[in-house]
Design a protein around this nucleic acid. Structure first.
Lengths: 96, 96
DNA sequence: TAGAGATATTAGCATGTGCTTATATATCTG
DNA sequence: CAGATATATAAGCACATGCTAATATCTCTA
């Protein structure tokens, strides 16, 4: 499996879960703290933290601590790069 | 969950599974029969058929029977539409 | 430094998922 | 129509995954 494949696969795993997808959706509207996300997606704080961890491992989100709170936001350049690669692959497919 | 959300989520679920991702990859190189896919991804025939069923349910592939064989191919226009929507969403995000 | 607030981590459980084996359906050919 | 080939479906099992509850870690402030 090439590096790109692995990335796309991780991206899929992230977006394929409803909770994580809702987290991403929320983050697309602007950075949020864990506590804010908890209120938005209606999950417990540990559940949100766990999802954020997998999202971070897949490089889809960035975190930054400011005082007691940790702000999360989408890594847009990374995601856009992935989407572009994918789009190119589909465009260049062998037509039927 | 909006209609687009549901589609993207299904797309993610499809791409997030390694076997399904390999099937999509193979199909991007041109349409294939179930039997050909079995040889390529090294899964049993029922396993491949099951994956193809979920891919079809998510509208990512198209099937067409020709005699005894069924040919599968990616639904490129559909996928490209999804990727475009996703790209737009990420581009138009609220910057941090 | 003690306590409070915010987040992360761990363990455990219930459910979902992917695979296998067995069987059914469909299509062709003799 | 009978058998062969291609594909689909069903049942069952092992494992992965998402969630909860409990606890740990980190940071601020009095």
């Amino acid at each position: 499996m090439t590096d790109l494949c692995k990335k796309i696969n991780e991206f899929g795993r992230a977006m394929g879960n409803a909770s994580r997808y809702r987290i991403i959706e929320a983050l697309l509207k602007g950075e949020k703290t864990v506590g804010e996300l908890v209120k938005i997606v209606h999950l417990t704080q540990p559940a949100v933290s766990q999802h954020l961890k997998t999202l971070k491992t897949s490089n889809l989100v960035i975190d930054e601590r400011r005082g007691q709170e940790v702000y999360y936001s989408v890594d847009a350049p990374y995601i856009l790069g992935l989407l572009k690669s994918l789009t190119t692959d589909v465009r260049n497919r062998k037509k039927t």
